[in-house]
């Protein structure tokens, strides 16, 4: 079954065909079912039901009904006349996420990264560390200058921003390299399955 489905998806490389479309539709249906079950057991049962109807000896926490009611309001989106009620849980998520991220990102992405970038530009007796630190400080500064769009990027300011783009391009290149490697490793895994596990050609 695994080989049939694997070959069906790979057949798309030739052209779109009914075999691929069958596999794609099955993937969508099975994925929906997978997430439905995962949400049911990990959210509805573990977070909602088990807190309201806990095992013997544990107090009932009716406060979790609020989450359940907000969740049900989310489903009202399917009823056009009262669909606007779904904005309430959405607002709760947006507000909570904004509040949590405001401090969380300021600490982790902001403060900690700035602190890590405040480095000595001269490390006595260690040329590697000196060059490395200069690259880190200059690269981070120039990259940030590039992201500052309130001033037109021309003249000296533009040159600094241009240097920032170079550093960003190296970062994107590294991310791209990792993405390609991840996809290739998946492809090798599928080929290993087809030629090894299924056909037995690879020992």
């Amino acid at each position: 079954m695994g080989a049939f489905l694997t070959l069906g998806i790979i057949s798309f490389l030739y052209k779109d065909n009914p075999w691929y479309k069958f596999c794609e539709a099955l993937f969508v249906g099975i994925s929906a079912g997978y997430w439905f079950c995962t949400v049911f057991w990990s959210q509805f049962v573990a977070k909602l039901w088990d807190n309201i109807y806990p095992t013997a000896g544990q107090p009932r926490q009716y406060v979790y009904l609020v989450g359940g009611i907000l969740g049900l309001m989310m489903l009202l989106r399917l009823v056009p006349k009262i669909g606007w009620f779904s904005r309430w849980p959405l607002a709760f998520v947006v507000g909570g996420t904004a509040g949590a991220y405001l401090i969380g990102y300021a600490l982790s992405n902001g403060m900690k990264q700035v602190k890590s970038t405040i480095l000595p530009l001269w490390v006595s007796g260690n040329l590697n560390a000196t060059v490395g630190n200069i690259i880190l400080v200059v690269g981070t500064f120039c990259g940030l200058i590039y992201f500052f769009f309130s001033k037109e990027q021309k003249g000296t300011y533009g040159k600094v921003a241009k240097l920032g783009i170079f550093f960003l391009m190296i970062t994107f290149g590294a991310s791209f390299g990792y993405t390609v490697m991840a996809r290739m490793s998946l492809l090798i895994g599928r080929m290993d399955f087809l030629f090894g596990t299924w056909l037995g050609l690879i020992k």
């Binding site: 982790s108 902001g110 990264q113 990259g143 940030l144 992201f147 391009m169 190296i170 970062t171």
Partner: peptide, 14 residues
Amino acid sequence: PQTAGQRAIMIGIA
């Protein structure tokens, strides 16, 4: 160089 670019992006995101 990659870390420098990454830090600029992370601070920008923050």
